[in-house]
């Protein structure tokens, strides 16, 4: 686990730059959010953390010819692309020349990969923690469950759900999904080139914006594609096992691959 500490220590300086960019993106989203609230005549007191996050992770409508054009939800896409970019190179660098020194000190390839998976998980958690903290700072209201009246007025609620269910879609599913996509990204990068994994997940996200399909995990990150805001939307009970499965399969594939990889 010492390598993990070393990796995190080296990653922390990057966090400052990353957090600055995230804050700028979220500030832009906040301005847009307040403008929409004003447009609908909703008082600013309804501007809370949960509702704002719901707006942030709203996503886009799926493409339906003559009804909804193909649309990339800019704010969400920028956040996802930023995260994918910041993890794109770090684990893979160990497989290149310098990695020989790292590997031989890790006792086995399996230990190296296990620590990289933990590193990815911590990266995802820190990234989302950053988003949640900025959401609280920007709204000045810690209420974590969205205001259902506001959400209904803004986006149209399709399913009556308990507060706990909203929390699952808003706080748990995005973390699990992004972790799964990160594992997939790193495995693809290991098997191809560092940019290979990055562009693969970007493509998957862009394809998810196009279609509402259970097998496209990008859909799990958009509130508008969930059963809460879409009558044929994705349910947590369907999405969670698939996201967890993608993470597990990626981790196992990485283990299998790295144990057989020649470092030349």
């Amino acid at each position: 686990m010492r390598m993990l500490g070393t990796d995190l220590k080296r990653w922390l300086p990057k966090l400052a730059l990353c957090s600055g960019i995230v804050l700028l993106i979220m500030l832009y989203a906040k301005i847009e959010f307040v403008r929409e609230l004003k447009y609908l005549g909703i008082p600013e007191t309804k501007d809370d953390c949960g509702t704002y996050l719901c707006y942030l992770f709203l996503g886009s409508h799926e493409f339906i010819k003559d009804v909804y054009p193909y649309e990339v939800p800019l704010v969400l896409f920028l956040l996802l692309a930023l995260f994918a970019y910041q993890i794109a190179y770090d684990p893979i660098r160990d497989l290149q020349k310098r990695g020989q020194q790292i590997f031989i000190r890790c006792y086995s390839q399996g230990i190296w990969w296990f620590e990289k998976c933990i590193w990815l998980l911590l990266n995802v958690l820190i990234f989302f923690l950053m988003i949640y903290v900025f959401a609280i700072i920007l709204t000045g209201n810690m209420k974590s469950v969205p205001d259902l009246q506001v959400v209904d007025a803004l986006f149209g609620i399709q399913k009556t759900a308990e507060a706990g269910e909203w929390l699952l879609y808003l706080y748990v599913l995005p973390v699990v999904t992004v972790f799964a996509m990160s594992c997939l990204q790193v495995v693809v990068s290991m098997m191809t080139v560092p940019a290979g994994g990055f562009f693969t997940v970007l493509f998957l996200y862009l394809f998810s914006f196009y279609q509402l399909r259970i097998y496209l995990p990008g859909n799990y990150l958009m509130m508008r594609r969930t059963i809460l805001l879409h009558e044929k939307g994705i349910e947590f009970s369907e999405a969670f096992p698939i996201a967890a499965g993608i993470a597990l399969i990626s981790i196992l594939a990485g283990t299998f691959y790295i144990k057989r990889k020649d470092l030349i």
Binding site: T6, Q101, R105
Partner: peptide, 28 residues
């Protein structure tokens, strides 16, 4: 996976370009 106690220099050494020599060794 690897020998339990091994030191290695293969071809051209590679380290973190933005760290000092001491820091590079400390990281390893």
């Amino acid at each position: 996976g690897f020998p339990e106690s091994v030191g290695l220099l293969l071809e051209n050494p590679a380290f973190l370009p933005n760290e000092t020599g001491f820091d590079n060794l400390k990281i390893l």
